[in-house]
Nucleic acid binder design. Structure first.
Lengths: 340, 340
DNA sequence: TTGTAGGCGTTATCAG
DNA sequence: CTGATAACGCCTACAA
């Protein structure tokens, strides 16, 4: 006698398979009394439904959509590749993944695309985009139709997503702070913080964490105002030249967002010996680590991000729980020596 | 027209389901010609077997055994707990996990237990133990009977295991080296290395990696001979007292193996301000990190270790491939700020 | 409101 | 050697 099956509970409750199935899937057309009787049997026998058998029977295909930024940076490319890889390799079976590239700046376009989604043909959505009122509405609409939505990489704290698949960016910023502070040996001086834009929540959170750690643990180091590059390498180089010229005591640079390549190249054109801490283990960052051009990379495993998003969406579809520890995305510290 | 099924290939090859099944599972009693015909059809149609349906039909239950050290340390306890947790929570379904605790010193006992395993009732084994000739033989015997075996946490490089689930300990030692070197700010002086015993391969590898990095990147720091404690806190304290007394220029301590608690307490009784780098994120290490009593922990995710071992054993049973990236165990650097 | 019969993709047990 | 046929645990018409 193995685990109890629908047959067992049908017999125990004195009803047929079909009825059991109906209460199992909360379908209408069953008297309250019967429902209660079946529920009781389920509980008493400790029945646990075999999801794989169910999926086989209904030939289930999970259709999940990933909304990803279309930008040219290596990190975004890595992310897109990870999604493509998961889709192709069939890590998660019975799952079809479709990717939709969206422009981060096109606030309306992405909301429109989301709204255009047919809830009948999509079982879940993972989305990486800046939070806007339009996006919030679109997400609320989807969820109202029973489609689970997870925030991917970038949190959407006010959009009522089912889950956030990503790291705590305040903690990531704190981690960067400790690395910069200790790798520069607490030498009194200044550090520069560079980012694309401080408009985004992620950047803000990281900057917040970074500042907090610097203030509480490295008071001898002054953190200069953030340099916002808006993705322009020329501008970045010019700003850096100016700041590094003005402050000879600068010991390190913390790059909050993407754009590692531009930063490294710009810095190297001006001064050597600075401690460089950046985010995201892109091919360039990896090579730079090996070549000792940067000191540390704070990153998140993109493969893990994608698999986690898929597992969570699927669990939501099936009404099953997830293993929290498995879904916690780690803030990884990558040095030259522990490069994966 | 979805994916091709056995029916499709049966029709294409002009044979019955049963015959298809026979060649699929490489069962005897099929003419070479027929086998070839079926194989051709399989290839042409791009058939991929639905493992879940197969498991349903044969009511498969994977029975995996974990051989774990019974020692009292927190790391070993954490490991045992992770295995128990995976078994209980059913992360991997249709899988029964049985744990066998073995004494690391009882070389014969563990080989005997392995040999006593009934290959008919065990589908795979994960084993963490020091490599000995007896163990090698027992593993070879098991594998000869078709039972997949993976080395768990400790590598068994000469035992012909199907896989090693764990980290590269040379790289882990190198990582420790960089952290010690940089966190002590390359101050000229000495660092102490402590371990239970240098007999174990893991310890040796870590020491090797540590020494290599210190020599090539931090020549101004002298690495003192390894202190072997053999698990005796008293002895450790005595040794440390002697060494720290003799070398006032010591700036840091690297603890290669387990025994973090004893080390931290011993060091604190003698001198403050040392940089401490240890392995394994146990409850004690976590608290010590928060309390700023240690500087960095190099660790591996125990939950990941267990799930990976289970996935790999299962894949071996099914003759299926694994996703390399998912099974790569990371060398994690944990600071106070990125504590999971 | 409830039950019966058949099917999902695979395997296993019989005969032939 | 090969082929029907009935499972496995669940879902879904269609009937009653």
């Amino acid at each position: 006698m193995g685990k109890p099956t629908v047959h067992d509970i049908a017999r125990a409750a004195g009803v047929s398979l079909a009825t059991v199935d109906r209460v199992l899937n909360e379908r209408p057309g069953v008297r309250e009394v019967t429902v209660a009787r079946v529920r009781a049997a389920i509980r008493e026998l400790g029945y646990i439904r075999d999801v794989t058998a169910a999926n086989l029977a209904r030939q289930r295909q999970y259709r999940f959509a990933f909304f990803l930024p279309e930008g040219p940076g290596q990190f975004h490319a890595t992310l897109r590749e990870a999604v493509a890889e998961a889709a192709r390799s069939g890590v998660i079976d019975r799952t079809a993944v479709l990717t939709r590239l969206v422009s981060e700046s096109d606030v309306h376009g992405i909301a429109r695309d989301l709204a255009a989604l047919d809830p009948g043909s999509i079982d879940g959505v993972a989305i990486m985009a800046p939070e806007t009122p339009q996006l919030r509405d679109a997400i609320a609409h989807l969820r109202a139709q029973g489609v689970p939505v997870v925030a991917f990489v970038s949190d959407l704290p006010n959009s009522g997503c089912d889950h956030f698949v990503g790291i705590n960016n305040v903690a990531a910023g704190r981690t960067a702070g400790v690395l910069v502070g200790r790798f520069t040996c607490r030498r009194p001086g200044q550090v520069v913080v560079v980012t694309n834009t401080l408009q985004s929540r992620d950047s803000l959170d990281r900057r917040l964490g970074f500042d907090a750690v610097m203030a509480e643990s490295f008071p001898e180091i002054e953190v200069l105002p953030t340099l916002e590059t808006h993705g322009d390498p020329e501008k970045l180089a010019a700003m850096l030249r100016r700041v590094l010229g003005r402050w000879p005591g600068i010991t390190g640079v913390y790059s909050i967002a993407t754009g590692t390549q531009a930063l490294v190249q710009a810095v190297e054109g001006i001064r050597t010996g600075l401690t460089l801490v950046v985010h995201e283990l892109t091919p360039f960052a990896r090579a730079a680590l090996v070549g000792r051009r940067i000191d540390a990379v704070i990153t998140q495993d993109v493969g893990h991000l994608v698999r986690s998003a898929l597992r969570i969406l699927r669990a939501r579809c099936d009404g099953m729980p997830t293993v929290a520890a498995q879904e916690r995305i780690r803030i990884e510290v990558v040095l030259r020596e522990n490069l994966p």
